[in-house]
């Protein structure tokens, strides 16, 4: 098991130069997630347009290289998706990270394949999943509130 598999250049690049880092004014979705075992703390901000698409997404907080780079890559991937598409993708990611799916279906050149190494470090899967599950919770809450508003 090589450290390069976990800390590859893509991971380190996103860790040191995070995309879409920072808070957002008046987001449609704001969701905070914690990783109790290591103290990671992340907040995802999403702007949902009138068509139910993610038109803006940012993240703030602090954490290890794995959780931060995963969050950075996630924000790039989620922009432009409908909430349904986002949820579907999140569940695919979860399967891949927990070993129930194959990263190769993403295609060889997909940046997210850089997270493949995490599957060999069970203690770190939670770090890689944090941003995704936090967004998922945020989408669920957004839907719940939407329903509440309609009644």
């Amino acid at each position: 098991m090589s450290l390069d598999e976990l800390y590859g250049e893509i991971i380190l690049d996103h860790y040191k130069n995070p995309r879409n880092a920072g808070e957002m004014e008046d987001p449609s979705i704001k969701s905070q997630g914690f990783n109790q075992s290591c103290g990671d703390d992340i907040t995802i901000f999403v702007r949902v347009d009138e068509n139910g698409r993610i038109s803006g997404i940012r993240f703030s907080g602090h954490g290890c290289a794995i959780s931060q780079s995963s969050a950075s890559m996630m924000t790039e991937r989620m922009r432009g998706k409908t909430l349904e598409e986002a949820e579907e993708f999140i569940s695919r990611m979860r399967k891949m990270l927990t070993g129930g799916g194959d990263f190769s279906e993403l295609g060889e050149y997909d940046e997210l394949s850089a997270l493949r190494g995490v599957t060999k470090f069970p203690m770190r899967v939670k770090c890689a999943s944090l941003a995704w599950t936090t967004l998922e919770t945020g989408i669920e809450e957004f839907r719940g509130e939407g329903r509440a508003n309609r009644t």
């Binding site: 098991m1 450290l3 976990l6 800390y7 075992s37 290591c38 103290g39 990671d40 954490g63 290890c64 290289a65 794995i66 470090f121 203690m123 770190r124 770090c127």
Partner: peptide, 20 residues
């Protein structure tokens, strides 16, 4: 380097430390 990453890298050398 975040403490959690330090702990993972050290573990590859058999060095068990706590992070958090």
């Amino acid at each position: 380097a975040h403490p959690h990453d330090i702990a993972t890298i050290l573990d590859q050398d058999g060095v068990e430390i706590r992070a958090g």
